[in-house]
Design a protein around this nucleic acid. Structure first.
Lengths: 200, 200, 200, 200
DNA sequence: TATGAATGAGTCTTCATTCAT
DNA sequence: AATGAATGAAGACTCATTCAT
């Protein structure tokens, strides 16, 4: 009686519909903020009725959480997406530079959603945990990659984490917060040298 | 039109009352989120009636903005608050360690509000600008401090910015995101060495 | 922004519901005044929830404006509603008397709403313009009617307007402002004779 | 205990203050409407504190009622204000025209307040009664004036009332509702002739 | 499955009126 | 007598969620 069960769609059509809602909802929420986006808008943007939303999702937040999960998996930690090939240790400066350039491009491409997502991450414990999970994965993957390449084996977890954090900061700096008084080429050089140093 | 004017309190009692509202309101909003805190709660927490709130503030957001301004000025960039005494260059590792320890303590003390504030910073353009302003100030101050101590004069703005960013990340790591697999003493050591390196 | 659109109902049920809200709302507002009637009351009187009101109407005023439009069209200028048959010029006194009697009856039947409506007409520019529009129509219709009957063709617009105004005053006098010291049969006689005179 | 008595000021200063509040309040209310004018504004316009208002007046409405009383006495029925000198019966058309011209001027001068006052008159029983009282006086005065001049002694009350009503309508027509398709000189002529006719 | 009409609790804000000083 | 700070009830409007069809 009362509240209907949330349905897990099995039909192809249904799955597509559910994904469309996630996509539209997540996009709107990222663009306008969670509290400034209402379910009617989401339904409309997804081309469905408001009622159907509540057959696929527990509540409005649920829509967003699905979006977050996908985002965290695919986009939040671009280091997971960049193909890290074998590194030529003699040429390590250039190798790192190339990775950083890729990361910056990646960040730039997801820029518009990123801010609101970070916002919610910081105000929502559960979202934070999701990210934390994927961050750990990213960090571990990177550590393994380094080990596989016989680079900086001591304190490898800490180094991996630190390096990712430095690179992430640099990307944000470049993509979002351009300061007038900073020369970003100089900064990149500092970043790369720091990383090289850590990996020695 | 008939809108009553916002009063700028001059009486001591009134100023205290206004500050009490900012304090209570800001605290609640930081704890529960802007949209999950209503004006009645804020008024109650401040020990005033709902009506009086609107004599001191334009709207609910206005309360928060006052809080943000104060927070940005006093707490967001603790480097501004830490007394940076003359640095003994021979003992630079320990000097930096001491600064980092102070920063960590500072972050720990404001931990509870910090997350929601970052959240709002990332979703609200105006808040973001306020922080940007104070961040710039922090960065400049720190650069000047380094110059005054004849440390790392080349690319000083970039270095200053980079170092602050590294220290800030470390503080967050320690205070908010403790990863089980990381040894924070090791990380601190990495951080300090990196900074020393940059300042050489 | 996220504001949901006002829906123009097409379903029979919806149209009925919208009309019910207009009817109930208009009646309440006429009886108690616009500012003394709240949306909850209107919704209750219409047998709907407060929320639904805002799917059909932009705001509280909008409900009233729909009512006004209907009232202006159907009731405000009863001369538009009275069937003006061919006039027997030989018997013109009696013909006019009959029209006046009809008008008085009409006014009496709408008496309760009339006062508040006039009140709002005089304080609201838009309402005033609506009435002005229908008043013009009434005046023109009446002028045409007179012309069709070969009565008083000179200065016909002015005469038409003047006569309607005289009749309207008389109706109000009788229906609303009964003065103890006036004999309304005598007044009616004066009115009719004046009109006859104007049409000679 | 509790509610303080309304004070009837006897001091010259106090009386002036009370009158200032009536004047300012009435003006604001006429300009912006009763519900769109708040007591703080009234107090400010009168140069007093909000608190003092409630020592002179029972409530907000009370302020307005005092204003209405004065308005009704002095301005609402301008026929009471126009000096009606002996009428030269041979020249009666011109005499009436002159009265009408005076009335139009009078109406024009009070135009700005007039509309809101009529609005309130129609929505407020008590205001309506005040006007009714003064209307009666105007009507009686005018009847007496006619009798004194040996004009139209039969059905004099009805005629007086009717004539005033016709003149008032004409004034409103000219001052407020100018219709594009009406020639107001023609209308005036119709009005005067009608009146002359009634007085024969 | 799907629709979209309907619900009604919840929130910000205003303002007439009172009260401490 | 006077001030203006303070109160708190009231009201328009929104929106997540449910329900009749």
């Amino acid at each position: 009686m009362g509240k209907l069960e949330i349905r897990e769609p099995t039909q192809k059509r249904s799955i597509e519909k559910k994904n469309k809602i996630i996509e539209s909802g997540f996009e709107l929420i990222c663009k306008k903020g969670f509290h400034n986006t209402n379910t009617a808008e989401i339904a409309k943007a997804a081309g469905v009725s408001t009622g159907i939303v509540y057959q696929y999702f527990k509540d409005k937040r649920d829509i967003f959480m699905y979006g977050i999960e996908q985002y965290a998996k695919n986009l939040m930690f671009p280091i997971n997406q960049i193909s890290l090939k074998k590194i030529d240790k003699k040429n390590i400066y250039n190798e790192i530079e190339s990775v950083i350039d890729d990361l910056v491009k990646f960040h730039a491409s997801t820029k518009s959603s990123h801010e609101e997502i970070i916002a919610i991450q910081h105000s929502d414990q559960e979202v934070n945990e999701i990210f934390h999970r994927y961050e750990l994965e990213a960090s571990t993957n990177f550590a393994n990659f380094l080990v596989d390449n016989n680079i900086g084996s001591k304190d490898i977890n800490e180094k991996s984490h630190f390096i990712l954090s430095i690179m992430d900061d640099f990307c944000h700096e470049v993509v979002y917060h351009r300061h007038d008084n900073l020369n970003y080429d100089v900064m990149k050089d500092l970043v790369i040298k720091t990383i090289v140093n850590l990996l020695d």
